[in-house]
Design a protein around this nucleic acid. Structure first.
Lengths: 306, 306
DNA sequence: TTTTCTTATGCTCAGTTTGAGTAAATCTAA
DNA sequence: TTAGATTTACTCAAACTGAGCATAAGAAAA
């Protein structure tokens, strides 16, 4: 129960840096898209968060608007001399630096790694392989209880029957695929994996990405964090496209703007954008003041008066 | 950018174990209520979570129903020989073991440490000292912008004007009091602290407790986790009291039961409890199946059909 | 110039959820 | 038998949501 000086571990920080560019969600990668950027935690740093922030800003030359700790895990696979490795992962929201190309680090569309998460154009191609693979996996269990349980989990995660997605379950979906052995990360080179099931990453970085996506998708619903991903001024439809990119869903246009407007999150700049094809759209900007004004945590409990 | 073996750190786990007993939220402490239980992370353990779970179950002789990682931080204050200390905190939900008394470890009412979080019987006594202290703090700033900002933050966190609490802001409230120097943890023995502002804890454990409270209060709204804190069978009012204990608020009785019933979270056991004074209440039990059946992540985005 | 196409924006409307409260039911204790 | 205390069943208006129609305001085509 007391604190002892045993088993020191190496600590590193892993960053999931997200931007939305050209209506696609993008994530910063290194090693030709195989890894998320990471680095050792240096003991001179004031705090974990500050350390990550300064490191990222040095790397990307862009201010890091929002940063949030995701998860900490002890890494089983990569052992170091005697000790253990601890990885602390962070989600950061930013905007993509201009120079795009095949450099390293490079921004990649996150659906490249998790293609089944993108339902903006209807059910993604990956669903076929997933349904087949999970069915086989469920059927492979000897115990009928386990079989039923596996089927149920598959249905909850992917909703095969009513063809829509609960966008917040991104992590659970990846974990299910992992458990079912449908992604290469799951086992040591089991041979043929369906190529429609996305590009793998090193270590458990794909799982960390899934964690980030799930967290961000949940967050945009009750906190005005999308704006960290937007330019200074934008149209409401532009904003909608960004949310759609993150959520992997199409939204109802009129209701989306009603939602934004009634919350008073944006104000008109007075200018319009004619680049939209039809009637020019008003340009708006985020009202940064709302961050100070309000608390954003809508209650769902039936509170009693007095 | 690459991973190097620098700066190994000592890693320990800190647990916030919560139970609800006699309609009060309780937390397991050690060192005569001064600390949260913690222990070194041992490298033999399969995973952080599993390690914590087995450790806690050994300590409490009670199964740990629910467990969730809270936050990881690098500890500035306690340095160990050369290296750095990393603390990983967890929230665990359980039920209090029978033997209660002045033992160590001991269960304590969490509002003992954060008395301003309990609004079940109206505004708590601590509010007077808080309002006074924060006002002084805001006024002490030279820059008028900082003054306005401090006042605004105080108002958001504590809602002095309309006398109700946003129960999810528990962490932000503690951090504000810390920043304003109103809790002893903030500075090295600054002298007289208002005793209505709760009992301090060692290290940053009070802050970790605040984190746990905030997280749990948010979670009970969209996940059926309260049931981990309940006995096998209970009445709806009993359940309401547990939620109220956690949230620090009184709830509207009829609407609370409507909420629970319409979600199909419980089923009748067929028995009744006559211990309630008036008309006997039906005893119910949690329908554990719902965990498998549903996903629980209500969308708040205006999704488009097709 | 007029028409057509496209997107932005405004508005309606029914169905559902929520906040708040009244009323009846059913037990214990006086 | 009655008073007191609670549980449980309804009611009702206000607010919120989902879905869609209608109009506005530009650009491009005819």
């Amino acid at each position: 129960m007391s604190i002892e000086d045993t088993n020191p571990a190496a600590v590193d920080l892993i960053a999931v840096l997200v931007a939305v560019t050209d209506e696609e969600p993008r994530v910063l990668t290194i090693a030709d898209g195989k890894d998320l950027p990471s680095g050792p935690f240096e003991s001179g740093q004031r705090s974990l968060q500050a350390g990550l922030r300064s490191w990222v800003e040095r790397q990307t030359h862009h201010p890091l608007g929002y940063i949030e700790q995701l998860y900490t895990f002890a890494d089983r696979d990569r052992r170091r001399g005697g000790g253990r490795a601890i990885s602390i992962s962070y989600l950061g929201l930013t905007r993509e630096a201009h120079a795009r190309g095949a450099q390293d680090p490079a921004w990649r569309n996150w659906y490249r790694y998790l293609p089944w998460e993108d339902w903006r154009d209807g059910p993604p191609a990956a669903m076929a392989a997933i349904e087949k693979g999970l069915q086989a996996w469920a059927g492979a269990a000897d115990d009928p209880v386990v079989r039923r349980d596996r089927k149920q989990r598959a249905e909850i995660c992917f909703s095969f029957t009513d063809l829509h997605l609960n966008e917040e379950l991104a992590l659970q979906r990846y974990e299910l695929l992992y458990e079912a052995g449908l992604v290469p990360e799951a086992g040591p080179a089991k041979g043929n994996f369906d190529p429609t099931l996305g590009e793998p990453m090193g270590h458990d970085h794909r799982r960390i990405l899934a964690t980030a996506i799930a967290r961000l998708r949940a967050k945009i619903k009750y906190r005005p964090v999308v704006f960290e991903l937007m330019p200074d001024s934008f149209t409401l439809f532009h904003l909608q496209r960004a949310v759609e990119a993150l959520a992997g869903l199409r939204l109802h246009k009129q209701n989306f703007r009603r939602l934004i407007e009634q919350q008073g999150l944006v104000e008109e700049t007075g200018k319009v954008s004619t680049e939209t094809g039809g009637r020019p759209a008003k340009l708006v900007r985020f009202r940064r003041e709302v961050l100070q004004e309000r608390a954003f945590a809508g209650t769902k409990l039936p509170v009693a008066r007095i």
